[in-house]
């Protein structure tokens, strides 16, 4: 393990349940690297500094506000499952009631398309009618 890898691991070094192999590798590197030992000491001082900070003091009189709110009637709310139930109902109704899309009829499109392209070198009126007839059969 080199210093770069070791220092990447150090921030988690003191946390519980670290993989034993990783911890052993870090320990082995620390044993012979004063620079990384220094880094670990600084990280530990950082953690200690954080832990030594007093909590912010709450302002006085908060309980009075809590008591006043508790004295008010509980706001009326529907249970959460009712929202999910309503959404499901809307979805079912939408599927059941929605009008079906108009059936696609291919024949007029095929015929029109063919007639428009008649001016082209492969245009052939007889073939166009055969195609339209075939499309009609398959519908």
């Amino acid at each position: 393990m080199n210093c770069e890898v070791c220092q990447r691991e150090l921030a988690a070094h003191d946390l519980p349940d670290q993989p034993a192999r990783r911890q052993a590798a870090v320990e082995a590197h620390l044993a012979q690297c004063p620079e990384c030992r220094h880094e670990l000491a600084v990280l530990r001082r950082t953690a200690a500094l954080l832990a030594s900070q007093p909590l912010d003091e709450p302002p006085a009189g908060l309980w009075q506000g809590v008591e006043a709110r508790l004295a008010q009637p509980t706001p009326w709310r529907l249970p959460r499952w009712t929202y999910a139930g309503a959404a499901a109902l809307v979805a079912v109704l939408a599927v059941a009631v929605w009008p079906p899309a108009e059936e696609f009829r291919a024949t007029p499109y095929l015929r029109d398309h063919y007639r428009v392209s008649l001016g082209g070198p492969l245009g052939d009126a007889a073939t166009g009618d055969v195609l339209a007839a075939l499309a009609e059969e398959t519908q």
Binding site: A11, A12, L15, L43, T46, A47, L49
Partner: peptide, 19 residues
């Protein structure tokens, strides 16, 4: 664990003058 480790690393740098 990984969030805590990353956060500690950031804090260690920000608080370097004190630690």
């Amino acid at each position: 664990k990984s969030r805590l480790a990353r956060a500690r690393d950031v804090l260690r740098r920000k608080l370097a003058p004190y630690v």
